[in-house]
Every structure is written in structure tokens, then in C-alpha cells.
Design a protein around this nucleic acid. Sequence first.
DNA 1: CTAACTTAGTTGAAGATTTACACTAAGACG
DNA 2: CGTCTTAGTGTAAATCTTCAACTAAGTTAG
Lengths: 231, 231
Amino acid sequence: MTTHDNDAFKPIATVDLAIFSLSPEGLAVLLVRRAAAPFSREWALPGGWIHIDEDADLEAAARRVLKEKTGVETPYLEQLQTTGSRDRDPRGWSISIVYIALLSADDVAKRQDAIAGDAEWRAIEGEGVGFSIAFDHALLLKEALGRIRSKVEYTNLPGHLLPVRFTLSELQSVYENLLGRKLDKSAFRKRMAEADFLEPVEGEMRRASNRPAQMFRLKDAQSLVLFDRRI
Amino acid sequence: MTTHDNDAFKPIATVDLAIFSLSPEGLAVLLVRRAAAPFSREWALPGGWIHIDEDADLEAAARRVLKEKTGVETPYLEQLQTTGSRDRDPRGWSISIVYIALLSADDVAKRQDAIAGDAEWRAIEGEGVGFSIAFDHALLLKEALGRIRSKVEYTNLPGHLLPVRFTLSELQSVYENLLGRKLDKSAFRKRMAEADFLEPVEGEMRRASNRPAQMFRLKDAQSLVLFDRRI
DNA sequence: CTAACTTAGTTGAAGATTTACACTAAGACG
DNA sequence: CGTCTTAGTGTAAATCTTCAACTAAGTTAG
């Protein structure tokens, strides 16, 4: 049953990230161009080996990769799933621990320069990016999109993609964009009030050639709030 | 950025299982006594190394461990999460990919003999088993219980713990047991009908000194059905 | 044989919630 | 000052939930 340490087979292990943000075309994911084999020159999800001395745990490794690629340190981050098989990497039995990160529009704008040279945002179309990417990353990305779309139904996830300050109408329009359907304004506002994850920013209003709108921010920018019912 | 294969640090990796069933005292988890160091002679979640030639992927490894410990081959199985850190195993940086398995009462009864000699069922009390177990397995078990209890609210999970054939009253009572509260009979039956995951077993009835009850079975014994609303 | 008992399964009224949509509010603009 | 635009609220009708009583179908005791 229990074996000696010598019997332990150690697979290749990487931590990979599906980092999302909002672009003018809707949801976008950060991809990097691989420099080395395998899949050299192809696009892939950002990721890396565990650094035995730097990384205290898996989440630390994910945060390190995230910072290397985007400069952002405190986004919403959650573990998605772990995939492992004999065939997914030509170098041998390998596993990938996949994390999802959501970047606020402010982070994307302010740190545009910090985005690593080999990295670029790609718009999401349907279940992926519309072209083929390295390893089984298309599948990992598809799983990440599934998780995100499912969570839009019953969490405040879209609030993590907006700028730090936003109006209820802006929030509603992100929900509608990600859900692919229109929502009732009055019901939407009631839900947000019940879920109690927003706080009004005192004094600040969005001004345009119409009635000014109250601005809000998330009470907690790093954790998701679950609703009682679907939106 | 991208490194040579030589730079890749490979952590220790195990697949560990939280295997649940119903005992007379309620929910129970299968624990094994460790034979070797570290934590020799202590109780732990069943698990093991990846077998490079036997296991095509992580789920195959989980199914292999499950079969070794219980004899059961086709239970409900889902990946819970992956934990990894420098400190969780005295032998060094290690990761554990944790799976949850649900065994039907029939599997437990019929395969009682197949349960490995070093394994025993332990009743769940609150957030664990009430005594200390090896590694960080108490924490992993707590996470597994959290996932299970949350899924009782909006899935047919309890149906996977019952015998293959059961009545609606029996199903309701498992829900009540796991939720820790009473449910309304009429609302409960409506939910189950809407969720459409049961099929009546033709002709079979549960007989006692009262009105006989229709027996049902799951339409699909290996997958969870999500409800539209909470139970 | 029948009345009492037990659990299965259904029904329906009262109350709560959701939905759809119209309405009012507050600014800019010409 | 009237029109336009988006913010934000109100409400009637429709739907869903809750709670409890009711009917159904068997066993068991006398």
C-alpha cells in the first residue's frame, strides 16, 4: 500500500492562469507567445513551474506568475481545476493547476505598460479565442469560461471586471454582455441591494448630458459574493 | 521566462480521496491507517502516487485508488481542489489533488468485504471526524464537507448516497439529515419532479404496515443534476 | 369485518415574490 | 423653456412558496 519515497513518481507540474478583463469587444483573456519548445512561437495561457524557494504554496505561485505578466498584485483569484495526463505534454506525464484571475478595467488601463512583452489580450469568441493555442490550453480556457459564465448567474463576478468606481447601469450592462440577454432594471437593482456588496462613493456622480448617476465600489475587491437566487 | 526542462522543479504529487457514504449515524468518510512514515499508524484520507504506466490521467488515478480501497468502480466522482505547499509534507514541497467520491448504500453493503484491511468508515461530526488525522487531511476533509453541504442545497447529491432503489420519503430524509432542517413534503416533491432526475421503478413498491410507496432510481448514477433554485 | 393507525401522496388558500412596464427625476442642450 | 437622455422608483398582475389539511392505501388489533 504505502511505498518508499523512492517509488514516488513525480510528474511535471505547472501553474497556469486564465486572466480575464473587459475589452471594448467584451471579455478578453491574456495569452503569451511561447519562446521555447514544445509549442515554440505558439500562444498559450501564462504559467510556469513552481519555484521551490520563492513559492510557499500554489496560490503564491499563481500570484507570482500573475505579477510577472501583468504587474497586478491583488486581483480576484480562484483555483479552477487541475488537469493531468500522460499525453498533454510531449515531455511526459504532466499536471497543470489552473487559476482564474479577474482584472479590473483600472488595472488593465494603468498597467498597460507593465504587461509583459510576450503577452497580449485576445477577445473571447464563444468558447475560446477562435484560433488554436498550445498544449490543451484551449480546453482549459473553455472550462474557465464555463465557470465564469456560470458564476455570472449567481455572484457579483462582473463587479470585479469594471473600474474601481462604476454606476449600476454600467454594472448591469456587463451582466447583460456576459449573460447574452437583457435584464430588468428594477429587478436588477433590487438584487444588487439585497446582495449587499456595493457601497456608494460619497459625493461622486457620473455626469453626462442626462441625470447624473450614483457611483459605487465593491466593499471587498478580492472576494466573490454569492446571491440567494439567480439573477 | 520560459526555462529549460532542467529548471523544472517537480513537487511530490499525490491523489487523495474523500470517500463518503451513509452510515446509521449519518454521513461517514473512509479513512486508512498509514503503514509507513511520515505519520505512520495515523489515520489519513486514502490516496497514492500517480502510477506512470497504469494511470492515463488524474481521474484514472483517483478511480484506481478508489477501487483498491473499496472495490467500487463506478461511483459519483468529482475533483474538489488541489492543495500544495512547502510545509504540508515533511518530505518537501508537495501537492495533493483531492477528489470526492459518493458511494451508494448498496455498494457499501455488498462490498463490505472488499473494503481494504487498513480502511474503516468514520462518522462525520461537525466539520470532521472528531480526532486528528495525518498531514493537512483534516483541512482537506473540511473543504470536502463544505462542498458537499453546499451542493445538497441545489443538486441531487443525496440521491447518490442512497441504495439504487429508494422512495421519495427516504430521499427527503437524507436531505433533511444533511441539511440539518426539516423540509416541506409537497415543496420537496415538486422540486424533485421539476429537476427530472428520477425514474420510477416499474411495479416496485416499498411495503410496510402502511400505504406502499413508489420506488425510484436515478436516471444517471454518475452525474449530479443542478436545480433551478435552492431546495 | 371493521375501526384505528401509519405513512404516501395531493390539494388549495393565504401570503410573499417576481415580472413587465410605466412613471417620475435630474441633468444637458439648443 | 421645451426636448432629449439616462437614472431611479412604483405598481398591478402573474407566479411561486408556505402551511396545513385532506385523501389514499395498506397493516394490525380486536
